[in-house]
Simulated assay, not measured.
Amino acid sequence: MRPGVHVRRASSSDLEDLVDLCLLARAESGVGRQLCTDDRARLREQLSALASVPEGVALVATCDGEPAGLALCRVLGPGPLAAAAVLSLDAVYVRPQHRRRGLGHALLHAVAEAADAAGADDVYAAPLPGSRGMQRFLARLGFAPAAAHRVVSTTALQRRLALDVQVPALRPGARGLEDLIARRRRARARAAGELEAVRQAGASMSMQVSRAVHTRRPSASSTTTS
């Protein structure tokens, strides 16, 4: 850790600084609500709750005594679907003017110590879409792809579910299958129609030939007279 850079557990006196850092990260990320709320009062309550629960880890980094970065984590598990605890790194952020001074490494070092103290086998991180710098930073530290996250607002999810109930969505390829069945039915009907037309034409020709045979007059016999 470079001189002047320090990382520690956040206390109640750091709460407003954490709020400021979160709002800066929100504005820089461009994804807004996916990171945090823009309501200071609500954000203050959420950060206070995170720091107060045993599984919550809120870290603040200072550079020459000035709040310069944060890391927000949660210890998850063990549980019904996880045999061991893991540490989820929900957010890590450093002010632009304090970057390239080792704060990110210092924060992740403290994160690793928190994971080890909690008995967490793995550290999970979910960097926000578009944060290429953070993606590269985590990759250099050994973070590998594990899963893809998708997000939808609760309102949008409820609306789509209601629409799916009213109009059941077709399975992928179902429309193509229906079109194929319809084409085959039309082809069979067309073939059956052509066969019937041939059969009728054959019956008509046979009837005409029979009529001609029955109506033909016998040929006149040639006789000689003396």
Score class of each variant (00 low, 15 high):
residue 13 S to G: 13
residue 15 L to S: 04
residue 16 E to G: 03
residue 18 L to C: 08
residue 19 V to Y: 11
residue 24 L to Y: 10
residue 24 L to W: 12
residue 28 E to M: 03
residue 33 R to A: 11
residue 34 Q to V: 01
residue 36 C to R: 04
residue 40 R to F: 01
residue 41 A to W: 06
residue 41 A to R: 15
residue 50 L to W: 01
residue 51 A to G: 11
residue 59 L to S: 09
residue 60 V to Q: 03
residue 61 A to V: 02
residue 61 A to T: 05
residue 67 P to H: 12
residue 70 L to A: 04
residue 82 A to L: 15
residue 84 A to M: 06
residue 96 P to K: 02
residue 97 Q to Y: 04
residue 99 R to Y: 00
residue 104 G to T: 00
residue 109 H to T: 14
residue 109 H to D: 14
residue 112 A to H: 11
residue 112 A to N: 07
residue 122 D to Q: 14
residue 124 Y to H: 12
residue 125 A to F: 00
residue 135 Q to P: 00
residue 136 R to F: 07
residue 137 F to V: 01
residue 142 G to M: 06
residue 145 P to L: 06
residue 147 A to T: 10
residue 152 V to R: 13
residue 155 T to M: 04
residue 168 P to V: 10
residue 169 A to K: 05
residue 173 G to C: 08
residue 174 A to M: 08
residue 177 L to K: 13
residue 177 L to F: 13
residue 179 D to H: 14
residue 183 R to Y: 03
residue 183 R to P: 03
residue 192 A to M: 08
residue 193 G to Y: 02
residue 194 E to G: 11
residue 198 V to E: 14
residue 198 V to D: 11
residue 200 Q to A: 12
residue 205 M to W: 12
residue 205 M to N: 06
residue 206 S to L: 13
residue 206 S to N: 08
residue 206 S to E: 14
residue 208 Q to H: 13
residue 211 R to V: 01
residue 212 A to E: 12
residue 213 V to E: 15
residue 214 H to R: 10
residue 215 T to Q: 12
residue 215 T to F: 07
residue 219 S to V: 14
residue 221 S to E: 14
residue 225 T to W: 13
